[in-house]
């Protein structure tokens, strides 16, 4: 009796039932949508400007403030420039600023946070007080203060965004280092004769890098918003540069006159890529979550 059953279970015809196909599908959908949108953004930013030999600055006063039409899918602005082209160039500038600022902030934040967490003691206390002091000032205010010290340009904005955003990375990295530091595998490394430097570089840093990288990716949209806010206030990039913040800023007047397109499309260009990046980062966070890994194994 048992014998036949045993054979049956291994027969190719055994009816296997699968688990969990349902909740995976929405997750995959979100991941795919995000990935597609991010790819589209990168494509638009990298490929379109060199390929399309159109002048984004081309002024056509006869066609100013035209609503969306087949000729100008996003309409035109108050001096008749094509808004689609302006948006793509604006995204290019905003993305550049966002990525540069996020990278700077992450490098600074990781270095500071890792040092504070790994060294501990008075170094940790001093560093974290500095972080607290920085955090107690509203980001935008601090950002405005920093930008105001320089002539308008790309780099002051990058510096301003980076200097206000490394704090959160430093906190995340420090917390991660502290939690790793109390694990027995660090004890084992110490007992195995590893120096302080070796413990930091071989065991602690690789452990926090995924978290730091994730924080960096999540910071790109944040930095883009920050840049747009500064530009909108007229403090960010020089007004002739087509950043998304500048586009919205210059469209304020027409919005009151009922022309919605010069505000809406640049706004969407900020929102959609940032959501897509956040969606991708969320999926990544699930991936590096060790609990999920152990769930898949036995």
């Amino acid at each position: 009796m048992a014998e036949t059953a045993a054979e049956k279970a291994e027969r190719p015809g055994t009816a296997w039932r699968s688990y969990g196909a349902k909740h995976r599908s929405t997750r995959t959908l979100r991941l795919r949508t995000s990935a597609a949108l991010v790819a589209l953004t990168v494509l638009a930013v990298l490929v379109v400007p060199p390929l399309v030999q159109l002048d984004q600055q081309a002024v056509d006063l006869a066609a100013k403030l035209r609503p969306p039409s087949p000729e100008h899918p996003f309409g035109t602005d108050d001096v008749g420039r094509d808004l689609l082209l302006r948006c793509v160039y604006g995204l290019r500038v905003s993305l550049l600023v966002g990525v540069a600022a996020a990278l700077t902030a992450t490098v600074v934040g990781t270095a500071v946070g890792a040092a504070a967490g790994a060294l501990g003691g008075w170094v940790d206390r001093a560093v974290m007080r500095v972080v607290d002091a920085f955090s107690s000032v509203p980001h935008l205010l601090l950002g405005i203060f920093i930008v105001a010290m320089f002539r308008p340009g790309v780099w002051p904005v990058v510096v301003s965004v980076a200097l206000t955003h490394w704090l959160s990375t430093a906190r995340i990295v420090r917390a991660e280092v502290l939690s790793l530091r109390s694990r027995p595998f660090i004890d084992a490394a110490v007992s195995g004769g590893a120096s302080r430097w070796r413990v930091a570089v071989r065991h602690l840093l690789p452990g926090v890098l995924p978290q730091a990288a994730l924080a960096a990716v999540l910071m790109v949209p944040h930095a883009m918003w920050h840049e747009s806010a500064l530009s909108f206030l007229g403090l960010g990039l020089p007004t002739h540069m087509a950043s998304l913040g500048n586009l919205i800023q210059s469209a304020r007047g027409s919005l009151l006159a009922g022309q919605w397109w010069p505000t809406l499309f640049p706004g969407l260009f900020i929102i959609v890529p940032t959501l897509a990046v956040a969606g991708l980062a969320g999926a990544w966070r699930e991936r590096i979550n060790p609990r999920r890994r152990s769930e898949l194994m036995l």
Partner: peptide, 19 residues
């Protein structure tokens, strides 16, 4: 002095560098 000791802990998962 440190390496004169070999140490084994309770939870192997936590005592091994996961990478």
């Amino acid at each position: 002095q440190r390496t004169a000791f070999g140490v084994v802990f309770q939870q192997p998962r936590l005592s091994a560098d996961p990478r």
